[in-house]
Simulated assay, not measured.
Amino acid sequence: MKKILVTGALGQIGSEIVMSMRKTYGEDNVIASSRSKGKNDVAETGIFEIVDVTKAQQVADAVKKHKIDTIIHLAAILSATGENNPAAAWDVNMNGLYNVLEVARESQCAVCTPSSIAVFGPSTPKDNTPQNTLMRPTTMYGVTKVAGELLCDYYFQKYNVDTRGMRFPGLISNVALPGGGTTDYAVHIYYEALKNKKYTCFLEKGTYMDMMYMPDALDAIVQLMEADPSKLVDRNAFNITAMSFDPEEISAEIKKHIPAFEMDYDVNTNIQKIADSWPNSLDDTEARKQWGWNPKYDLAAMTKDMLDKLSLKLNIQYK
């Protein structure tokens, strides 16, 4: 990777990976883009372009202008938000990806498009879910992610576009707030623990889902894109995970640091239905074998780091 365009650069992943990649590859070599700008570090500390991925010419213009060789395609509408507006989810997630792949084909760019555990559905094996298994998702987000994996495979097989991707679990960040996903509670709970010592969870007790701390997610993107292509048997559907927990377990871990913390429940049936359709845990053997995937954070390490970083950010002492 030498010249990198990041779409959806103001989202939860994009806002962090742009800053991280600029340190690694140089500020002028990582171009951030989104359909709007605003005031933020991503837009103000490096090159920024207005790019709506549903408009192919805007993607093409940015690639040509900056001589891009790698596109990190993050622009997407997530699971919970997508159920509120399925048409918009299809437009952004599918038409946007098609435009990016077409530009990549024409300009000979590599493309990284993260997928999601949302590709799985109620009929998928729930525990230690294999990488290659039955995928019948019940959300528009999941439908677009399955189709996106297949489309990326198609562009590699037919046009030799260097497409790569991993299935992200829920992502937890101390920098950017999440953008309408089913696993968002696992971020909000830390903020509320520090601010109010109380959190009302929108998922039921015992709802297990795979999760990952953002530093590991950022590493995964770079590691996969830098991996030797000759070793990649799979390309656009790598299971990756770092931990699996339910609301009670994350609450118990927080209580080790904030003993007064309490959690109650007000279940959102629509979001719960999505969570129930996803796996409890993933098998990420192939990612570990093919490109050396190895996360650094478990629940205990992540919780300590989240509380330390957020206490500084919010100017709240908890120790």
Rank of each mutant, 00 (worst) to 15 (best):
Lys39Asp: 14
Asn40Tyr: 11
Asn40Trp: 06
Asp41Gln: 14
Val42Glu: 02
Glu44Met: 08
Glu44Leu: 06
Ile47Tyr: 08
Ile47Cys: 09
Phe48Cys: 10
Glu49Thr: 05
Glu49Asp: 07
Val51Lys: 01
Thr54Gly: 03
Lys55Gln: 11
Ala56Met: 13
Gln58Ser: 08
Val59Glu: 07
Val59Met: 09
Asp61Arg: 08
Ala62Tyr: 08
Val63Lys: 03
His66Tyr: 15
His66Cys: 04
Ile68Ser: 03
Asp69Arg: 11
Ile71Ser: 07
Ile72Gly: 02
Ala76Arg: 00
Leu78Trp: 05
Thr81Gly: 01
Glu83Asn: 11
Glu83Gln: 15
Glu83Asp: 10
Asn85Arg: 09
Pro86Met: 10
Ala87Ser: 13
Ala87Asp: 12
Ala87Gly: 07
Ala88Leu: 13
Ala88Phe: 02
Trp90Leu: 08
Trp90Lys: 04
Val92Gln: 00
Asn93Val: 01
Leu97Asn: 02
Tyr98Val: 15
Tyr98Thr: 13
Val100Gln: 03
Val100Thr: 15
Glu102Cys: 12
Ala104Thr: 12
Ala104Lys: 13
Ala104Ile: 13
Arg105Val: 14
Gln108Val: 12
Cys109His: 10
Cys109Val: 14
Ala110Arg: 15
Val111Ser: 04
Val111Tyr: 08
Thr113His: 15
Thr113Asp: 05
Ser115Arg: 01
Ser115Glu: 00
Ser115Lys: 00
Ser116His: 04
Phe120His: 09
Phe120Cys: 05
Pro122Ala: 14
Thr124Ala: 15
Thr124Met: 11
Lys126Met: 11
Asn128Phe: 11
Thr129Trp: 02
Pro130His: 07
Pro130Tyr: 08
Gln131Pro: 01
Thr133Ser: 06
Thr133Gly: 03
Leu134Val: 15
Arg136Leu: 11
Arg136His: 12
Arg136Gln: 13
Pro137Glu: 05
Thr138Asn: 12
Met140Ser: 03
Met140Glu: 02
Tyr141Ala: 01
Gly142Thr: 03
Gly142Ser: 05
Val143Trp: 01
Thr144Asp: 00
Thr144Met: 02
Thr144Gln: 01
Ala147Tyr: 09
Ala147Met: 14
Leu151Lys: 14
Tyr155Val: 15
Phe156Ile: 11
Phe156Arg: 15
Phe156Pro: 12
Lys158Gly: 08
